[in-house]
Design a binder for these strands. Structure first.
Lengths: 162, 162
DNA sequence: ACAATAGGGATATTCTGTATCCGTAATTAG
DNA sequence: CTAATTACGGATACAGAATATCCCTATTGT
């Protein structure tokens, strides 16, 4: 069970977008170059963000993406679920119903106890992702990324942002 | 990102094995019939448990599986990791290193901040699974499963346990 | 008018999960 | 001793998902 690489891409892209000045947009092309990713395929990940309403887009030259809400409101969970889907990682096939000792047509009272444990763990995972915003990430990055690279990247991005 | 169905199978099988009297073994065939699963493929999941040292096996007629340790010591995480692997669900491709603004051969100080957040969530998931043992599950099941089915299943299993 | 953009559809490729089959070694029941 | 039963591992086949590319369309800024 491994998350798609698109999740990583989308997270890094949102990290960049969260640093954009108000009202500016950054294109797929720029984001792909900055991260060394295949432009066409990265585009699919960004479209997922768009469909989830996490980013706003404009067409034409100088078009691209910006965050649809403040970085303080955008969480890791938002992005992960936009790309990976919001379904549970554990799917209960209800195999207890195959027990030959059960009367036919017997109706289960509630969800399987095994599934409930797995779903609680799932919720713990989601809860951890929900606690971290891109404002938090921005602070962390600013504190630990080499200042020369940080400002160099910022300039690079601004030069390409419409 | 969905867990293999083998995880569900292995969990249910361990639930049954945890109810076996000391020293008795239950075969793949019995476990497959009880859960309505393909015997040959379920066998692969059980082999994973065996390789991880979670269960003990014997060959020959009346052979099969039993837990290698007490149900109070066997956790959900043990079983999930035995089947699914113990690797992280988020793999960091370190795409920050592709940043064209970085000097060539620049060496990163530590793990990527994005990855760290994802790994913390991963650990929250594992931590939740580590907290639940098969003794816990047994209590829950005994409390909520229809008593007639419960004892019927117990008899069914004992009749086939070597 | 032209160029650049997001978006979506179609397609190909690779990898993983699912499933089955068979051979081997070990062990027990008769 | 013989035959049946078991775990185990390897080989293979199949389906679906992830990865990746290509092309067409509509929109928008210069």
């Amino acid at each position: 069970m491994i998350l798609k690489s698109q999740v990583e891409w989308a997270l890094h892209c949102c990290a960049i977008l969260s640093g954009l000045p108000e009202g500016r947009y950054l294109s797929t092309k720029a984001l792909a170059e900055l991260h060394g990713l295949p432009k066409e395929y990265l585009s699919k990940a960004l479209q997922s963000l768009s469909q989830a309403g996490l980013v706003h887009t404009t067409l034409g030259p100088s078009g691209g993406y910006r965050l649809a809400k403040s970085a303080t409101e955008l969480t890791f969970l938002d992005v992960v679920e936009a790309v990976e889907g919001s379904g549970r990682t554990f799917v209960c096939q209800n195999i207890r119903a195959n027990n030959p000792c059960r009367p036919k047509g017997y109706c289960e009272s509630g969800p399987c106890a095994v599934a409930r444990v797995m779903w609680e763990a799932d919720e713990a995972w989601r809860s951890a992702l929900r606690k971290v915003t891109f404002a938090d990430l921005g602070k962390t990055l600013q504190a630990e990324v080499d200042p020369a690279i940080w400002s160099g990247t910022f300039d690079w991005v601004l030069k390409r942002a419409g």
